[in-house]
Nucleic acid binder design. Structure first.
Lengths: 142, 142
DNA sequence: CATAAACAGTTGAGGTTGGCAAATATCCGC
DNA sequence: GCGGATATTTGCCAACCTCAACTGTTTATG
């Protein structure tokens, strides 16, 4: 199944390098909005118009469900999200972003979308090629 | 200075997606070696044969110097790294990886080098092209 | 040479995240 | 209606993170 192991590994190592380098940006950006990196991650996952059960959030963050309670507590205390009991199933609590939360989320995503140095320095051709390859890599498995 | 803002932003958004997806792998891999993600990051930065002052480590991790103390305390307690007073300047303490640390580090890096699904599924041509582009992106500024 | 400023690392307080186990409330099948 | 799953919460504890204050060492300056 693997075509060329060395080629693949080198590819991943480069990407991994970029990943670690840019990982350091997250706490900084989060701090600009008075948020923790986790809170940023949560806000990102709460797409406007949709309502997400807390359990699904835990899945999305890849962490234990018990953590989410505290994270949402703090976001709710700041009036950015709201807990509502599920209509069909009253065990679940679904999350909705408040007006204030949406406003913050919009600015936050805009800020995070600013490409970092390594991307900015690429030629337009490289950028186009990179986008195309990444789209193929992230394509959902059919 | 910016060629095509939309093209660049799309490129970064795709990469950012991949970054977030793969970020979740880190804690899992770290746990396989009884390490925290931060400890992994530190071990990765401590290249064999070199000696790194604690301050530089803080820079590499993008965090306050005071964190490093505790992180290194735990790594040292497990006999993976060693603190030594700097020879030229006795304020600094440089870190060296022990024999045990090197062994663990080797296995750890090998494990982390395993390419994840999105990379494995790419064609050899795409992998080659991706490597080339990433090399250009990460090229040190001359 | 002496004193002050700058610097590396540590310590302590306070807050957020992380996992695990136990408790609570609700749902589903029988 | 009863018993077993399921969603969230709570409590406990460890790690990480920042900031401010402190120790020891170096460097600059008068």
């Amino acid at each position: 199944m693997d075509y060329d192991d060395d080629q693949m590994t080198e590819c991943w190592e480069l990407l991994f390098d970029l990943l670690l380098t840019e990982r350091a940006r997250m706490p900084t950006i989060a701090a600009e909005f008075d948020l923790s990196p986790t809170q940023v991650h949560v806000l990102r996952l709460l797409e406007p118009g949709t309502t997400v059960p807390m359990g699904r959030l835990a899945g999305g963050l890849g962490c234990d469900a018990s953590n989410i309670t505290g994270v949402i507590d703090r976001l709710e205390a700041r009036g950015l999200v709201e807990r509502r009991s599920g209509e069909r199933d009253r065990r679940v609590k679904v999350l909705v972003v408040t007006e204030r939360g949406l406003e913050l989320r919009r600015r936050l995503l805009l800020r995070m979308a600013e490409p970092p140095e390594p991307i900015r320095r690429l030629s337009p051709d490289d950028q186009r090629a990179l986008s195309a390859i990444l789209r193929r890599a992230l394509e959902p498995t059919v």
